[in-house]
Design a protein around this nucleic acid. Structure first.
Ligand code: ZN
Ligand code: ZN
Ligand code: ZN
Ligand code: ZN
Lengths: 130, 130
DNA sequence: AAGTTAATGTTATAATATAACACTATGTAA
DNA sequence: TTACATAGTGTTATATTATAACATTAACTT
């Protein structure tokens, strides 16, 4: 029987690394960190990252080309993500606000179109850096 | 006297190209297109792009590494941008909705923090592709 | 067991972006 | 007008991010 959320070996290694990291990780920094576990080539990393993103276990911070573990279980279905990014210290936090997600999921553009998939990145200074 | 919004030669060439384009342009496609005008190296393109983004004349579509002319004059101050992206045909439109921009500018995260700078990318199917 | 699909390993290469340094143009102020 | 400061340019080299192509192996389905 197929378990929907079982990770393969490479996926698990890479997910564990990202999940433990206090900050988003870049693909080649992931590669460097997992070479001792036998993952030698960029493609092995990118393939695992693609799947993990697809599953919603991690998200890509597009403006930083970096990957962060999902901090909020609902993204596994929605692919609707929001982050705050500190422009001083680069601290990145996933925002989990039901009012925000409701507002965005119900937002209609001028053609009346709604979008269930989106990515929002807020920029500013975090608590410490203010 | 310094005119705040005068573009330099390279900036003007590159802005004109992007502004005329019906679709977002990537840096190396820009480079290819302006080589006949004497812009020969990636850095010349990236430097102009950086300035144009800073001025708000163009925006970067982060999930596509592509650049689009601002379709809405207010961004020149705010750096608060929103786009809809068709996942079928890649048509990209800048969203100009005062209710959306008000909502996002007033959004407070769980620390009570507000953000005047953000980038939002909606994904779905455009009118034609539905 | 045979067929199918998903994941892996590997080499090579494409696409995106920046570092460093010398030089030029433009604006400001003695 | 000369000196100074600042912003933009040209150029070469290189760093960083991501994918193509192909052979192989593992896992699931019938
Ligand atoms: Zn999430
Ligand atoms: Zn900070
Ligand atoms: Zn704009
Ligand atoms: Zn479309």
């Amino acid at each position: 029987m197929h378990k929907e959320n079982d990770l393969t070996k490479n996926q698990q290694i890479i997910f564990d690394l990202i999940d433990k990291s206090p900050e988003p990780l870049k693909a080649y920094s992931i590669l460097f960190n997992v070479q001792k576990k036998g993952i030698k080539a960029p493609l092995q990393v990118y393939r695992a990252l693609d799947k993990l993103v697809e599953m919603g276990k991690i998200h890509k911070i597009e403006s930083r080309n970096a990957f962060i573990a999902c901090q909020n279980s609902s993204c596994q279905v929605s692919k609707a993500t929001a982050f705050s990014i500190c422009e001083m210290c680069e601290k990145i936090t996933e925002i989990s606000s039901s009012s925000l997600s409701k507002y965005l999921a119900n937002f209609k553009d001028k053609d009346g179109m709604k979008y269930s998939k989106y990515n929002l990145e807020f920029f500013g200074l975090c608590k410490k850096c203010r």
